[in-house]
Design a protein around this nucleic acid. Structure first.
Lengths: 229, 229
DNA sequence: CCAAAAGTGTTCTCCATACACCCATGC
DNA sequence: GCATGGGTGTATGGAGAACACTTTTGG
């Protein structure tokens, strides 16, 4: 490769807003910065894009290195290009958002990742750089997209009850939904497999468990089907 | 500012897919490249982001320098970060799409811009870099967004007839719409001002002209209104 | 037997769709 | 007078929203 001199190049970073759903709450994964700038401040996981990797690969690599997460839903969000978003350098950030099946992940605990913490999105501490803004855009995207693309399932365990799905939607959308209408609509799409299996160790009537049929969804999409909740 | 050495930085460019609506056709504005790589090939207007300007500003500047267009709707599309998208360098591109009121613009003709040509989107020549891909993503975005955000008006003159609006939607969405239902729906939103003025110099019955009321739309949005066509 | 959540149908309203004819104008 | 597009209303079906009680299980 040849490089252009004479024109200084901005730095190029990736940042990830990682969401999980746990204990009925939507959470975001943050890292405490160990180096300046913003040393000791919470931040979204991220880092610089290397010269020989795609931007998507950089996002996945940073996620792995900083949080230990590997198999996650990851999608590009927006590129933040303000001149002053880094205090002493010129750095543009391609932001991503990620969705993690927290309940499944929890079973493979500690990795060699740095200290990370899940914060409820309603109780996020002060963040470095323009990360509050990035997080806001990520939340808006999640809220907008969850209604017409089946990404909500990326936040639930593989096997889930309909009420868990409903609560997820209620938390993300910020309003309550009618139980009967919700179930009717979801089941009418015929994308959930009834696993004929029940919840374990709940102290009330156990709910049936379902699984999202991704293959079927993809097949339907090619025939013009539109998911909508 | 301080700069990081030791880690080579990718180049950072912007590219714009500029759309216009003319003679009943959706068109895209292309530039013939005068320098290598891809010398003599058609490409989307674009160029490198300067160290002291935001990425948005870079897109606007390139648009002005290369096409003479200034007052256009401009929105970030996606960032393309493949390693091999430039043949001899590492360049990441933040892509934008722009919408131009071609009929209005036409009255202020020649600028000092380079030679540019409007191509119907169905007859685009071979393009440089990954610009075919960028253009495809831009078209998908336009088609998806035009239905629930009133951006179609950015492609029409300020004063337009309902049939022009309908034809615009038909071209973008790629299917025909029912005239009565379309008019009913549009007028029911109460976002178009009847200018009580008629089309001039048409060789048939002249249509009433309307104007999109942006202020009113913005007011309604804050009260939970959703545009949809 | 009590607490907690699971599960289940019907009615009504509204919106999307389908559909055909007369009107105004320029040539 | 004819060609070209402008402009208008109604009927039907389907989807979304509102709404309350019985069932199951564990403690």
């Amino acid at each position: 490769m040849t490089y252009r001199y004479g024109h200084p190049r901005p730095g190029l970073a990736v940042d990830c807003a990682v969401f999980g759903f746990d204990a009925g709450d939507l959470k975001v994964l943050l890292i405490e910065r160990v180096l300046p700038p913003f040393q000791g401040t919470w931040a979204l996981p991220g880092g610089f894009v290397r010269i020989d990797e795609t931007v998507d690969d950089a996002a996945r690599r940073e996620l792995r290195e900083e949080t230990g997460l590997t198999k996650v839903f990851l999608e590009q969000l927006y590129t933040f290009g303000a001149v002053d978003r880094h205090p002493s350098d010129r750095v543009i950030s391609v932001a991503y958002y990620a969705l993690v099946k927290l309940a499944d992940q929890r079973t493979h605990p500690a990795t060699d990742a740095r200290a990370t913490t899940w914060f409820p999105v309603s109780q996020v501490p002060p963040l470095a750089f323009d990360h509050p803004h990035i997080l806001q855009v990520a939340l808006d995207r999640l809220r907008g997209k969850v209604r017409y693309v089946p990404i909500g399932f990326e936040l639930l365990p593989q096997k889930f009850a309909l009420s868990e799905l409903q609560h997820l939607y209620e938390v993300i959308l910020g309003r309550s939904l009618d139980k009967r209408n919700f179930r009717k609509k979801v089941l009418a799409m015929d994308l959930l497999e009834d696993l004929e299996e029940l919840q374990q160790s709940v102290r009330h009537r156990a709910a049936r468990l379902y699984r999202f049929n991704l293959k079927k969804y993809q097949r339907l999409v090619t025939h013009g089907f539109n998911f909508e909740l």
